[in-house]
Amino acid sequence: MYKPIISIIALPFVWGACVATVPPPTQRMADAESAERSARELGAEDEPAAQLSLKLAQEQTDQAKAAMAANDNATADRLLIRANADAELAVAQAREKSAHLAKQDAAKDSATQQTTNASQGAAQ
């Protein structure tokens, strides 16, 4: 009869011990914020796909900050894992946009050059 009572009393202590052993995820927080900054600098806000990823990263980073403030480091940590994945993706999407723009510029330059060469009679 007394055993379930002990269990019920012990359970919050065990959980509390677990929550207390998770240290504040400061490194993950720093990583996420750094990646978000990179994404913004690479122009993620001008590219719809990158903008969405960046927005998700920022939202989850904000939620993680709130969780840390409430001493819920475990929740903050898992939110930051997600935020990092989104921020990393936002950086890559911004880079992809730049690569496409560079390719378009090259194609334009190439067309200009071909026209110039042709008009100089040297394109054969």
């Binding site: 994945a85 989104d86 990393e88 992809e96 560079a102 090259a106 194609a107």
Partner: peptide, 23 residues
């Protein structure tokens, strides 16, 4: 996200190779 990242990086490489080819 990791899968999406791999795809985006691959497309970036493709674009860069395309640019390099044009250049």
């Amino acid at each position: 996200r990791k899968t999406e990242l791999a795809v985006v990086v691959a497309r970036t490489l493709q674009a860069q190779q395309g640019e390099a080819g044009i250049v």
